[in-house]
Design a binder for these strands. Structure first.
Length: 377
DNA sequence: TACACGTGGGT
DNA sequence: TACCCAAGTGT
C-alpha cells in the first residue's frame, strides 16, 4: 500500500507511476471509437483531425457515446470539414442535430465553425485560451482539443476524470467545490508524453472500470494507488451536492393536419428551452396545478379534439403536455408553415415534439418508405 | 455560485 | 417506479 507524497515539484514517483500505468492500460484496453485515432497510430506519428475531435467533444457533452455515434457519422458525412459546416444553413444543422438534446450546442456549433474560418483561416487553434474564446468551447472542451488534437500537455477534467481522481485521492469535498483539488491532482499525474492518450485513458477508465456504481476495481490498473479502493468504499466518491426537486409543469400542443397530410409547424425563439427548434403550436408551460391548459391557447379556432397526454422529463422540470388534433384546410397563420407529410421526419423537431405529434397522428414523424415520389419523377 | 439547458439507458 | 447518470457551457 503506497501513500503518495507530493515532492516540491508537485509530482511524486508514485504519481508518475500512476500516469504510466494508465497509459499502459490504455494501450491494451482502449475503446475503439469513430472519432478516435488508436494509440498505435498516434505512436506512428499520426494526428487526429481537429475538426473531428472538436465535433465529437461538443456532441459528447453530457451525452453518451452510444447516442453520439450515429450523429457523428451523419455530421461528418454531410459536412466533412469545418469550412463545410460553416457554410451550412443553420436550420439544416438544427434538423440534423434534432434528438440529441441541449440545442444550444447546435446553435454554437455553427457560430464556432464560422469563427474558426473567419478568425483562424479554417484551422482550429491549438492554444487553450484561443480555443476557450470560441462559442461552445469551455474549460473541458478546450483542454480536450488541445491535448487530443494538438498534443498539448494539459489536464483534461470531465466527469469521468472527476470520479477517477476523487477515488484515487479519497477527495471528500463535494463537487463542484472539489474541482481545483481534482485539477491539481490530475496535473500531478500527467505524464511527460502522450497527453492526448492520457486524457482518453483516464476517461476510458472512468467509463469502463471506474464506473459510478459497482466499479470493477479488481480489473483496475491503478487500484494499488487508490485510496477509495483501499478504504473499501469507492462508490462513496465523488461526493455531490444534493439536487433540487423537479417542478412539474403543464402545457398543451395543437397538431393540425391538412387534407394532404401536411402538419402545421412553427419555429421556437432562438434562445431558451429548445431554442431555434420547430414545434406544432403549443401553449406556454405553466406550473399551475388547477387544471390542464385548454383550447384558449389554440393557434386558431378549429374543431380541436383531445388526442391524449404526453409526458416528458427535462433536466430541471417535468412536463405533461395535453395534445389536441384537428383536420383543417387553410393557409398557415403568420410564423407557421405546412410541413409536407414526407418532410416531417427531417424537421428540427425535439423529441418531446415528436412525441406530441405521434400522440395525435401515429407514424407521422417516421421516415416514409422511399418510393412513391421517386416513381413519379 | 447556481441555475438553465435534452435525452435515453441503467438499476 | 423513481432516480441516477453521461467526454459541460453560458449566463
Amino acid at each position: 500500500m503506497s501513500m503518495a507524497k507530493l515532492n516540491p515539484k508537485g509530482a511524486s514517483a508514485d504519481a508518475r507511476a500512476t500516469g504510466a500505468q494508465l497509459l499502459a492500460w490504455y494501450d491494451r484496453h482502449h475503446r475503439s471509437l469513430p472519432w478516435r485515432l488508436p494509440p498505435a497510430r498516434i505512436a506512428a506519428g499520426e494526428r487526429p483531425d481537429p475538426y473531428r475531435v472538436w465535433l465529437s467533444e461538443i456532441m459528447l457533452q453530457q451525452t453518451t457515446v452510444q447516442a453520439v455515434k450515429p450523429y457523428f457519422e451523419t455530421f461528418t458525412s454531410r459536412w466533412p470539414s469545418v469550412r463545410a459546416l460553416a457554410g451550412a444553413p443553420g436550420d439544416d444543422i438544427m434538423k440534423v442535430w434534432a434528438g440529441l438534446g441541449y440545442y444550444s450546442r447546435a446553435r454554437n456549433l455553427k457560430k464556432c465553425a464560422e469563427a474558426v474560418v473567419e478568425r483562424f483561416g479554417g484551422e482550429f487553434p491549438a492554444d487553450l485560451d484561443l480555443l476557450k474564446s470560441l462559442p461552445g468551447i469551455g474549460d473541458y472542451t478546450a483542454a480536450a482539443i488541445a491535448a487530443i488534437a494538438f498534443d498539448r500537455p494539459v489536464a483534461v477534467v470531465d466527469g469521468n476524470v472527476e470520479r477517477v481522481a476523487t477515488r484515487l485521492r479519497s477527495i471528500a469535498t463535494p463537487l463542484p467545490a472539489a474541482k481545483p483539488q481534482i485539477r491539481a491532482f490530475v496535473q500531478s499525474i500527467l505524464p511527460a508524453a502522450r497527453p492526448g492518450d492520457f486524457a482518453q485513458a483516464t476517461m476510458d477508465l472512468g467509463a469502463t472500470i471506474c464506473t459510478p456504481r459497482r466499479p470493477a476495481c479488481a480489473l483496475c490498473p491503478v487500484n494499488g494507488d487508490c485510496l477509495a479502493f483501499l478504504g473499501d468504499e469507492p462508490e462513496r466518491f465523488p461526493v455531490k451536492a444534493p439536487k433540487a426537486e423537479k417542478p412539474k409543469r403543464l402545457g398543451a400542443a395543437f397538431v393540425a393536419q391538412r387534407n394532404d397530410g401536411a402538419i402545421l409547424l412553427r419555429k421556437r425563439p432562438e434562445t431558451g428551452l429548445l431554442g431555434g427548434m420547430s414545434e406544432p403550436p403549443t401553449s406556454g408551460w405553466t406550473s399551475r396545478q388547477d387544471g390542464e391548459p385548454g383550447l384558449e391557447a389554440a393557434p386558431f379556432e378549429a374543431e380541436w379534439e383531445p388526442a391524449g397526454m404526453v409526458g416528458h422529463v427535462f433536466t430541471h422540470f417535468e412536463l405533461r403536455l395535453s395534445v389536441y388534433r384537428a383536420n383543417i384546410d387553410r393557409a398557415a397563420p403568420d410564423g407557421c408553415w405546412w410541413s409536407a407529410a414526407a418532410d416531417i421526419h427531417s424537421e428540427a423537431l425535439p423529441t418531446v415534439m415528436k412525441k406530441a405529434i405521434e400522440a395525435a397522428i401515429p407514424g407521422a414523424t417516421l421516415k416514409p418508405v422511399q418510393n412513391r415520389q421517386q416513381r413519379r419523377n
